[in-house]
Design a protein around this nucleic acid. Structure first.
Lengths: 364, 364
DNA sequence: CCATATAGTCCTCCAAGCCCC
DNA sequence: CGGGGCTTGGAGGACTATATG
């Protein structure tokens, strides 16, 4: 229901000086001054109305709102950001393409951000190398984000964060402690995470409790903090149970990697239990085992990580570790708002949850 | 390597009038004027340098760059956007949570946008109802996006687009023609898509060519343009082959929906071929069939849509329709840049590709 | 050819003005 | 006549563009 911008607008009294005729200025969106003129008030009053300031008479407010509606006015975010020094924009860098974990985290983060009145600008990277992250960060800072969230960080962020020098708060969605061992954490850098190590421990303990004497780990790329943490949790659980470990099989995050690892296990000797670092790896593994006629869970028990949407429908349905991405997104935003308010919020670590399905049912 | 902002900065000669002492202003990021002062030039010259304007002496440029580096200056995007009327930001609305299609499209769009110097602000909606889309659009326009991309549109966008009245170009990633039947397309609204109807036809024809006399369609939610188009393609292929169709089984997009549909088929009578509207539906269907001891492809042939990352590793590996999301993202961005340049780019429809795997191998 | 001054962008904050009781 | 509620005008804010030295 938006009228044409100039419908009924008061005629501007162009000064009749000998100034050269202006070029036929391309249609400029209506400004606060236009609204003010139409409503017969000052631009300041219009500002008060749009910012819900109390000191405006109901009648005046009505007139202003009518003018706003008639002109189709929207306030100019650039001018607003310029003077308030606040853009209302958060930046998010995610690594890992369309993988379920990063995608869900971003989704929930954006949801929480929207609820808090922010908007999220993204840089979705395929690879987490230093250069990519550096460029992405630069871009985001260039467009004036108030804070940056790095989802699914790889070791490359460490070096990059030195460079940023905390011109805005930075939030890592990752277990920091395990990540950047050694160096002190730069100021202005915070962290929230679901306990990856704990999740891996849960998965491994589940298999060990079922009587398996060895749990092979199919690990993710080791330049990911999360992948490192999952290795650590697996190792820890095995150590506590006094079970020996072979070196984890390291690869990417994809089903194809899981399939390749499965082939390798079939060659080298199939263990009775495998903990895969994510569900896609587990899916590929399941496929390799099925092709070889190895039964799951009768011959091999398999556990994944993520509980991605299809996991309950794999063959067999996959036991896995679920992360509460919604809670993670909320925690991320709370941390960020606290940091933006000048505080120094503590890190948050959420607890993951084991979801038991058919792929791990029977001990050998 | 960023010095503290005021290191070595020239002392400002505060005027000695009786003005009240300013409050200890919170540390303001360095402005162009600060850089200019430090480099001993005017702010305009600094502007020239950062915008790679030719008319600057090499020596001057050096001094300015040194000052920029020393102060850790970055240009203020708000001020820049204010005067140029260009934010460098595109808005993207996606519907469908973490589903592979929308996610991939967004990823590739962002990639193309970055290459073109844009940054993308997202609103990731779970549901595509009118209110959600309307709010999301409002938010994006409020932060000053130059154009809006709507990924995976549902019928709700139609009404919303009336409302927007083309204050910025809008791009639908969807087959428009099939979508908003009837009403004329609003000006400033463009469309790019992978031919959904064609993809569905390819899938159905593949099954029919293998000798199946009936292809049951497991459809997606019918408030999605894409779901409607896939139904149309399936129907068209069946009609051409002179094969009768039962009403498609309509549901959501999830594996659980596919599973439920599978159970229903098991009750009502299992056809020899099923075309599922996406891979997750097919996955759920495969699971239901496997549980009932129905073999795929021996007893039932199954084809999906999307070729999501795990599809090649389902049991059995899934025949499906692949969409070139990278090309889609590029096409989207080309269309948008053309529209922003004042043109009226024609719609783009890309061709999908059938990927044949084990799930459809044998005719009955 | 290079550099500077000046105007203009649109908004928010601050101080001052108006009005009416 | 003075005060509170409502409104106004003017001063930035950081940058680009258009003349001017």
């Amino acid at each position: 229901m938006v009228d044409r911008p100039d419908a009924g607008a008061p005629v501007r009294d162009d000064r009749d000086d000998g100034a050269p005729p202006r070029p036929p200025a391309e249609p400029r969106p209506p400004s606060m001054a236009d609204v003010a003129a139409r409503a017969g008030v000052s631009h300041q009053t219009v500002s008060r109305v749009v910012n819900a300031h109390p000191s405006v008479l109901p009648g005046t407010r009505e007139r202003v709102l009518a003018a706003i509606d008639a002109l189709g006015y929207r306030r100019n975010s650039a001018a607003r950001a310029l003077v308030t020094r606040r853009s209302g924009v958060l930046g998010a860098i995610t690594v890992g393409g369309t993988d379920y974990g990063p995608t869900s985290t971003l989704l929930e983060l954006e949801d929480a951000a929207r609820a808090a009145g922010y908007v999220v600008t993204v840089a979705t990277l395929r690879r987490g190398d230093e250069a990519s992250i550096g460029h992405a960060l630069d871009r985001l800072l260039d467009v004036g984000v108030e804070a940056v969230v790095v989802v699914a960080p790889t070791v490359g962020v460490a070096a990059v964060l030195e460079h940023v020098r905390a011109s805005v708060p930075v939030l890592l969605v990752s277990s920091w402690v395990a990540g950047l061992q050694g160096g002190p954490r730069p100021v202005g850098v915070h962290a929230v995470a679901v306990g990856q190590q704990e999740g891996a421990r849960l998965a491994t303990e589940h298999l060990l409790a079922a009587g398996h004497r060895e749990v092979v780990h199919l690990a993710g790329p080791q330049d990911w903090f999360d992948a490192q943490d999952r290795v650590a949790g697996w190792r820890e659980a095995c150590a506590v149970a006094g079970v020996r470990t072979r070196a984890p099989i390291t690869s990417g995050w994809d089903a194809a990697d899981g399939y390749a690892a499965g082939r390798r296990l079939l060659d080298e000797g199939v263990p009775s239990a495998v903990f895969a670092a994510n569900d896609q790896l587990a899916l590929g593994l399941l496929r390799a085992l099925a092709e070889a006629g190895v039964r799951v869970p009768e011959d091999v028990a398999v556990v994944g990580f993520d509980d991605e949407p299809g996991a309950a429908f794999y063959s067999p349905p996959l036991t896995t570790v679920r992360q509460d991405f919604a809670a993670l997104g909320r925690a991320a935003l709370e941390t960020l708002t606290a940091a933006l308010a000048g505080g120094d919020p503590a890190d948050v670590v959420l607890t993951p949850q084991l979801v038991v399905r058919a792929s791990s049912h029977r001990p050998s």
